[in-house]
C-alpha cells in the first residue's frame, strides 16, 4: 500500500518534471550552435602606422616659461580623448596635467632650488614604465604592457574597477570614474570612445593616433616642449636628446623605469 503510493508519487513527479522542462529543451534546441566553424580572421596594422620597440617621451622643461606654454597640451589631450571635467576635485580625471617640481619629484625636492625650477609647471602623465607596478597588480589583465611597443594600455571592457592599480601607481597617473563621465564631457570628440562609470583610465600615449600614423596630440601642439620616439632606437629623436642632455625621471629609485624623461 505504502510502497505503491510512493511509486505513484515518483512517476507523477517525473512526469511533471518532463512537462515543466520540455519548453526549456525546445527553446535551446531551436537556438542551435554558432554555425559552421569559422576560418581564423585576418587582422593587420595600417601601413601608415607609427611603430617603435618602446615608445618614450622627453619633456624639455627649459622651453616652459609659464602655465600658458603647457595648458594647450592638456587641452588637446583631454579634448581628443573625451576626458570629462568632473565638478569635484577628488573625482578629477587627468591624463596629462601640470605639477610643481616639488610634487612631480618629491624625492629630489630641496628647500633651496632655482627660482626658474620653482616656477616651472612640469607636465606629468603616465610614464609607460618599463616595469609597471600597475600591470603587475591587475587581477584581470585589464591593464597590460603591449609587447609590440611598450605602451601600458587599458582595456576598459575588462576593468572591474578594483582600483588596485591606483594604489600601485607611484605617480598618481591613474584616474577612476566615480560617476558616469558622459555628463561632464564639454565637447565630445565623436571619433573617440568615452568611458563608463566604475573603470580606471589614463594616458594611452595616443595609441589610436599612432595606429593612423599621427604623433600624440600633446606632442603635436607642444612647440617642441615634448619629443616622442623609440627608446630602443639609438638614432631616434628621444635617444638623441637623452644622449645630449642631462635628464631625470620620476622616482627612479622605485625601479619602475619610467619612459618619460625630463630635461631640466
Amino acid at each position: 500500500m505504502k510502497s505503491s503510493r510512493r511509486n505513484f508519487l515518483k512517476i507523477a513527479g517525473i512526469a511533471a518534471l518532463g512537462v515543466g522542462a520540455k519548453p526549456v529543451f525546445d527553446t535551446f534546441a531551436a537556438v542551435g550552435g554558432h554555425g559552421p566553424t569559422e576560418p581564423a580572421p585576418i587582422f593587420k596594422s595600417s601601413e601608415e602606422a607609427l611603430t617603435a620597440n618602446h615608445w618614450a617621451m622627453v619633456v624639455d622643461t627649459r622651453k616652459i616659461r609659464s602655465e600658458r606654454d603647457v595648458a594647450p597640451l592638456f587641452r588637446a589631450c583631454h579634448q581628443v580623448h573625451n576626458v570629462p571635467d568632473m565638478p569635484l576635485k577628488r573625482h578629477e580625471i587627468k591624463w596629462i596635467w601640470a605639477e610643481s617640481f616639488h610634487h612631480a619629484f618629491p624625492d629630489l625636492h630641496s628647500e633651496l632650488i632655482s627660482d626658474k625650477i620653482a616656477r616651472t609647471p612640469f607636465p606629468v602623465l603616465c610614464n609607460h614604465c618599463e616595469n609597471p607596478p600597475c600591470v603587475r597588480v591587475c587581477p584581470t589583465k585589464a591593464t597590460f604592457k603591449r609587447e609590440s611597443d611598450g605602451i601600458v594600455v587599458m582595456d576598459y571592457h575588462r576593468c572591474i574597477g578594483c582600483r588596485f592599480c591606483l594604489a600601485a601607481c607611484p605617480y598618481g597617473a591613474r584616474s577612476f570614474n566615480f560617476f558616469n563621465p558622459d555628463d561632464y564631457i564639454k565637447e565630445v570628440n565623436l571619433k573617440f570612445a568615452k568611458r563608463t562609470k566604475g573603470v580606471v583610465e589614463k594616458c594611452n600615449f595616443c595609441e589610436e593616433r599612432l595606429a593612423e600614423g599621427i604623433i600624440p596630440a600633446c606632442v603635436e601642439v607642444s612647440n617642441g616642449i615634448l619629443t616622442f620616439g623609440d627608446l630602443r632606437d639609438s638614432r631616434s629623436s628621444v635617444r638623441k636628446l637623452i644622449a645630449e642632455n642631462f635628464t631625470i625621471r620620476r622616482k627612479v629609485h622605485l625601479g619602475t623605469s619610467p619612459a618619460v624623461y625630463y630635461i631640466v
Binding site: 576593468c159 572591474i160 574597477g161
Partner: peptide
C-alpha cells in the same frame, strides 16, 4: 566588502575568466 567596493561589480568574475597569478588580489 570587496564586491561593494568594485566599480563594475557585474564584471567580478573576470578575475576567474582571466586568471592573473601575478596579482595578489587573484
Amino acid at each position: 566588502f570587496i564586491i561593494v567596493d568594485l566599480g563594475q561589480p557585474i564584471r567580478a568574475l573576470n578575475v576567474l575568466l582571466y586568471p592573473s597569478p601575478g596579482s595578489i588580489l587573484f
